[in-house]
Amino acid sequence: MRTVEGDLPGAELGVCDAHDHLFLRSPRLPGEELSDADAAEQQLRAYAEHGGRGLVQWTPYGLGRRSGALVELARRTGVRLVAATGLHQAQHYAEEPPSDPAELFVQELTVGMRGGVCGESPRAGLIKVAGDFHGLGPYARRSMAAAAEAHHATGAPIAVHLELGTAATDVLAFLCDQREVPPSSVLLGHLGRCPDVRMQREAARSGAWLVFDGPSRTHHATDCRLFDSLADLVQQGHGNQVLLGGDTVTATARAETGVPYVTRVLRPRVARELGEQVARQFFVGNPARAFTVQWKS
């Protein structure tokens, strides 16, 4: 597991929020920036008070991820933080994408992320890319091709934003069938935003990680159907592929739910509804396996 403080055994993650954001900035979200380090620290401390030990930030290159601040936050709070390289959808950038994204991803995974301050330039621990609504356009394919190239060079897992939970089969066909990325290295984000249980079962049969990360999105079909999906996947024998997170992407979401919701509300409810053993699997065992990598460089 590659954290902002260095490589550690996967067991060091403990109870883990597998998809969230402490820092994020996008021209698509004016006035909703997450940029305050003190506020991020308060979020992490409240998260830790309810048992949180690890958090994976999916904010990719160019969206204000504040890699140097992540190092200081990890040191001050004791929460293990994993950071991302990668590219989101083109609409989230005001400037042109890097000319060679694969080279950028590899550099940030093996040498250090761009944008560190005060000499802090930690390495990323995963690659984040994004699909489109019910398909993959040219930009998405270019980003995913670069992610696959970087995965083969480093071993890093690839986390994928599924637009409104769609196009999981397209993503798997492109990354796994065409680009030969093992499904066990692919994390399908936002799977719960399209509450189609049959689609979720099909994605599960691929062997990919199934990421349910909706508490901050009250206008999506997330919490209201989350436990139906989770119970079904456990019943179908796919509980060992499920990851849970908060995906707090805006200041509004931070005020309404925030990172602490994952340990304060979500984990206890999983334990009540599905049992403590399943809760431990979702929040401890599965993240330890998903983010443990045999790094090639």
Rank of each mutant, 00 (worst) to 15 (best):
residue 41 E to V: 01
residue 41 E to C: 02
residue 42 Q to M: 06
residue 42 Q to K: 13
residue 46 A to Y: 06
residue 48 A to T: 00
residue 48 A to M: 03
residue 48 A to H: 02
residue 48 A to E: 02
residue 49 E to F: 03
residue 51 G to H: 07
residue 52 G to T: 02
residue 52 G to S: 03
residue 53 R to Y: 01
residue 54 G to A: 05
residue 56 V to E: 03
residue 56 V to K: 00
residue 57 Q to V: 11
residue 58 W to I: 12
residue 60 P to D: 10
residue 60 P to A: 10
residue 63 L to M: 15
residue 65 R to Y: 08
residue 68 G to T: 11
residue 69 A to K: 07
residue 70 L to G: 10
residue 71 V to F: 11
residue 71 V to L: 09
residue 72 E to M: 12
residue 72 E to Q: 15
residue 72 E to N: 11
residue 73 L to Y: 04
residue 73 L to E: 05
residue 75 R to Q: 15
residue 78 G to A: 14
residue 79 V to A: 14
residue 80 R to H: 13
residue 81 L to G: 06
residue 81 L to Q: 04
residue 82 V to E: 09
residue 82 V to D: 10
residue 82 V to I: 15
residue 82 V to N: 09
residue 83 A to Y: 01
residue 83 A to V: 07
residue 84 A to E: 05
residue 84 A to H: 06
residue 84 A to C: 12
residue 85 T to L: 02
residue 86 G to L: 09
residue 87 L to Q: 08
residue 88 H to I: 00
residue 89 Q to Y: 09
residue 89 Q to E: 14
residue 90 A to V: 09
residue 90 A to C: 03
residue 90 A to N: 05
residue 90 A to Q: 12
residue 94 A to Q: 09
residue 95 E to M: 03
residue 95 E to T: 15
residue 96 E to T: 09
residue 97 P to D: 12
residue 97 P to A: 15
residue 97 P to L: 14
residue 97 P to T: 10
residue 98 P to Y: 13
residue 99 S to Q: 13
residue 99 S to P: 01
residue 100 D to E: 15
residue 100 D to A: 15
residue 100 D to F: 04
residue 101 P to H: 01
residue 102 A to I: 06
residue 103 E to L: 13
residue 104 L to D: 04
residue 106 V to D: 02
residue 106 V to C: 06
residue 106 V to G: 04
residue 108 E to S: 07
residue 109 L to G: 14
residue 112 G to D: 12
residue 112 G to Y: 08
residue 112 G to W: 06
residue 113 M to S: 01
residue 116 G to I: 07
residue 116 G to C: 07
residue 117 V to N: 00
residue 118 C to R: 15
residue 118 C to Y: 11
residue 119 G to I: 10
residue 120 E to P: 00
residue 120 E to F: 11
residue 121 S to M: 04
residue 122 P to R: 01
residue 123 R to A: 06
residue 124 A to G: 07
residue 125 G to C: 01
residue 126 L to M: 12
residue 126 L to E: 08
residue 127 I to P: 00
residue 128 K to T: 14
residue 130 A to Y: 06
residue 131 G to E: 03
residue 132 D to F: 09
residue 132 D to E: 14
residue 133 F to Y: 15
residue 134 H to I: 00
residue 138 P to G: 04
residue 138 P to V: 05
residue 139 Y to Q: 08
residue 139 Y to L: 05
residue 140 A to R: 04
residue 141 R to V: 03
residue 145 A to L: 09
residue 145 A to G: 15
residue 146 A to K: 05
residue 146 A to N: 10
residue 147 A to F: 10
residue 148 A to I: 11
residue 148 A to D: 09
residue 148 A to M: 08
residue 149 E to G: 08
residue 150 A to N: 03
residue 151 H to N: 12
residue 151 H to C: 06
residue 152 H to S: 10
residue 152 H to M: 13
residue 153 A to N: 05
residue 154 T to V: 12
residue 156 A to Q: 12
residue 157 P to D: 11
residue 158 I to M: 13
residue 158 I to W: 11
residue 158 I to K: 09
residue 162 L to Y: 04
residue 163 E to G: 02
residue 165 G to Q: 00
residue 165 G to K: 00
residue 166 T to V: 06
residue 168 A to S: 14
residue 169 T to R: 14
residue 170 D to W: 03
residue 172 L to E: 01
residue 174 F to P: 01
residue 175 L to H: 13
residue 176 C to T: 08
residue 176 C to M: 05
